[in-house]
Design a protein around this nucleic acid. Structure first.
Lengths: 380, 380
DNA sequence: CCGTTAGTTAGTTAAAGTTACTAACAAACA
DNA sequence: TGTTTGTTAGTAACTTTAACTAACTAACGG
């Protein structure tokens, strides 16, 4: 945007956008602002290109001048969202309503240097932008690691074995536009809140089950990262101290023993001596009692972790997604809920809705778009 | 306040208050507002009684007119804070800086009716107000139960066996001033944040150990209540599933087995056949191996719960307070930390500060004051 | 040592711009 | 003719810039 919207201008844009088609007179009534100032703001916004006079409406039964109906121009600006994964990068270009205009995929597997990583991010962003670059509002990026959302700094990305990368500044100065960066799971939660299955939810816990397991938190309607940007690392949660305590030197940090792709694969290998992929494990659930038992133990663990999240945070919705969580959602939920029903009292459990991540593997990139949208355009 | 402060007026008041003594010229420089409008706002605020011209300052070495130093008038309005406990009620009257002007205690033990409870709250508030009633900004109340902070509704108070009490409205219409109500532990956390050991902390978990155990959460600098006003009920957290699962029908909800006054008393009775008060248990810790063992098991449990809080929320500070937690703080911390050091990696643990609740048994009432202060005067 | 002058700072006044409002009105329509 | 939309005109509130007065320090000359 060439200039920042004032509070009243934001309100008018918000109204035009949510109402779809609306006249100046109705805007005045709904915003509480006077008709002249609404006309004034509307003409500014038309000048900006943010809204247009779309069509002429109908008079009321009692007569009167026909209203000029205004409409939001969702493509007067664009946003780029990037999901930097350990195996692949997804970049999307969307309009202001989040409609995906273009999508680019890149392979990131094996990358271990800062230069190679930033280069591939540059390429992804460059290629996905098929519109006038001056119309790009910003780039929102989700990365698998510890980040500081305030300054776009990446502390640690185990997937690339990289430390201390000021990625926000690097990308921002390269393209000359605003860039925001946060943890991928957190960004995914934001995406589901704005465009997925958690619309109008203020307290959300998104559990991403992939190679590992992590949670993204939206609390009081805002991203929650914690004081050292480590909130939601539920892979380290403790639910069965005596058993865990006996079987290893330290629970806190024993990520892989959890319910996750990696965790299941290791358990199957250790206990059954089988080298199966996560997909193969799920394919053989009903065929092998031993595999099923390992899976059920995982589900119990997962249920205990979720019970603790419910206890501490009292969320309105819990979303399960991620590579494994999304693809195997119904299988997981089917076996997870019986455990939860034993652990959590029904009067509490019934108030919490469980959902599949509606956005699937676009969750993080869509969340990246939301990051920019909410900070540089409108917080809806 | 006779009128609501505008954003600029708030800024000026905030600056005068935090700087202590400041001239109009410095206010203009620090606020970014022009000198005339600062003078304008200052004269309004002097008229209101919120600030005064305190003294004449010194010129700089280079010469120039001496500045008139302005000062905040902390007692131009007053706030009432009320701690409604299961045994006693504490009401305090403070000025805008939180200085306690008056304090009243009432016995609430045995109260089981709505009328009796509201009557004693009325009395406490009435008696504590020793200043002109029109100078009272509002009343903030912490109650032991589930509440909706938005409308002052109390869903459930087990201590009084009461349900569905619109306490906020009852008290507000009786005194004709704003009233805010929230859960006592949550309010206590707010108190510690504004006036106690958690100043300038944005992510705080306060653990109140008394008859029972609960947590109050301040996340992103704001009170966090959860979607059904049940956040922080850590008495229900699960940390040792197999052991707990075997010994009872349901873990979730088995409050008393935890580390709490009640929990310890019951454990001592069950295992040792002794009818000891919590105080007697602590007094005999070093004399009885059996009591010590029960206490250490409690500490281990507490450590596991705290480890889970750290994992999920990554707080900056953890405060331990409450009837038991405050009085026995050093004893608890001494035996808690060794467990935590085993469970939580040192690089994570070192970033989290553990503190005693500085406000002691005034934590809730001071928090009630903060509730009103932050909503009706200034969010600092 | 004392009065004068230059330079600096505090706070006010005056003029002008911005943003909002109300009142009144023309255009369009049943 | 009455109703509704959207504009114009005039006004009020608030903020800014520019310029001012008042008050002070430091340094210099006699």
């Amino acid at each position: 945007m060439s200039y920042t919207l004032s509070a009243n201008e934001e309100n008018i844009v918000r109204l035009v956008r949510t109402r779809g088609l609306i006249s100046r007179a109705d805007l005045s009534r709904e915003s509480g602002l006077s008709k002249p100032i609404v006309s004034n703001i509307v003409s500014k916004l038309i000048n900006e290109g943010a809204i247009i006079e779309k069509e002429i409406g109908a008079s009321s039964e009692k007569g009167g001048k026909k209203p000029i109906l205004l409409s939001f121009v969702s493509n007067y600006k664009y946003i780029v969202g990037v999901d930097v994964g350990g195996n692949k990068l997804i970049a999307i270009l969307t309009d202001l309503d989040g409609n995906i205009i273009n999508k680019v995929r890149k392979v990131t597997k094996g990358i271990k240097s800062k230069n190679a990583l930033t280069e591939i991010i540059f390429q992804g962003i460059e290629e996905v932008i098929t519109v006038d670059k001056t119309k790009i509002l910003g780039v929102g990026i989700g990365v698998p690691g510890t980040t500081d959302i305030k300054n776009g700094f990446v502390y640690y990305m185990p997937a690339f074995e990289l430390n201390d990368l000021p990625l926000g500044e690097i990308v921002s100065s390269h393209f000359g536009i605003p860039v925001m960066i946060s943890n991928d799971v957190t960004v995914n939660a934001l995406g589901e809140m704005s465009k997925g299955s958690a619309k109008n939810i203020r307290d959300l816990c998104l559990i991403a089950i992939g190679t590992g397991t992590g949670a993204g938190l939206i609390l009081n309607g805002s991203i929650y990262c914690g004081s050292h940007n480590m909130a939601g690392e539920i892979g380290y949660m403790i639910t069965d101290w005596n058993r865990e305590n006996k079987s290893r030197n330290r629970t806190f940090g024993n990520y892989e023993s959890w319910f996750s792709g990696n965790g299941l694969e290791i358990k199957v290998k250790e206990k059954l001596g089988l080298n199966l992929t996560t997909k193969e494990i799920f394919d053989n659930l009903e065929k092998s009692r031993d595999i099923k038992e390992i899976f059920l133990q995982g589900c119990e663990h997962l249920a205990l972790g979720i019970a603790n999240i419910i206890t501490l945070l009292d969320p309105q919705m819990i979303i399960i997604t991620g590579g494994v969580g999304y693809n195997q959602y119904s299988m997981i939920l089917k076996h997870l809920m019986p455990f939860l029903e034993v652990i959590v009292p029904p009067e509490i459990l019934k108030n919490i809705s469980f959902n599949r991540g509606e956005l699937g593997d676009l969750g993080v990139s869509v969340g990246g778009v939301s990051l920019i949208h909410d900070s540089y355009f409108l917080k809806m």
